[in-house]
């Protein structure tokens, strides 16, 4: 199958991801999973600001949740949380 030269993607370029990049899934880097205590959480969005991988999702109904497909488990969210609502739990304590 031949392609017109201009249609060939430039080398070493990953298409810009809109939501998620299937070529760089980083969830298996994590060995401590962030878990938010919804009762403690004040929805201040500090974790949302600091997450280096944009893995914190905010919603009006459900509050803070994490995109575990890409979360590397770096622990920044748990460190910056002003009320200590985010704890880090060993990954193997969860089935999924």
């Amino acid at each position: 199958m031949s392609k017109v030269y201009k249609q060939v993607p430039f080398a070493a370029i990953v298409p810009s991801p809109t939501v998620a990049n299937e070529g760089m899934v980083t969830g298996n880097w994590r060995y401590l999973r962030p878990v938010v205590d919804k009762a403690e959480c004040t929805q201040c969005k500090t974790c949302w600001v600091f997450c280096p991988d944009a893995c914190v999702n905010m919603s009006a109904d459900e509050g803070v949740s994490f995109n575990l497909k890409y979360c590397k488990g770096c622990g920044v969210c748990s460190n910056v949380c002003p009320v200590g609502a985010i704890s880090r739990v060993p990954e193997l304590d969860f089935e999924e």
Partner: peptide, 9 residues
Amino acid sequence: AEETLVKGN
């Protein structure tokens, strides 16, 4: 060398 590697690799 680390247990969590069993998951997702």
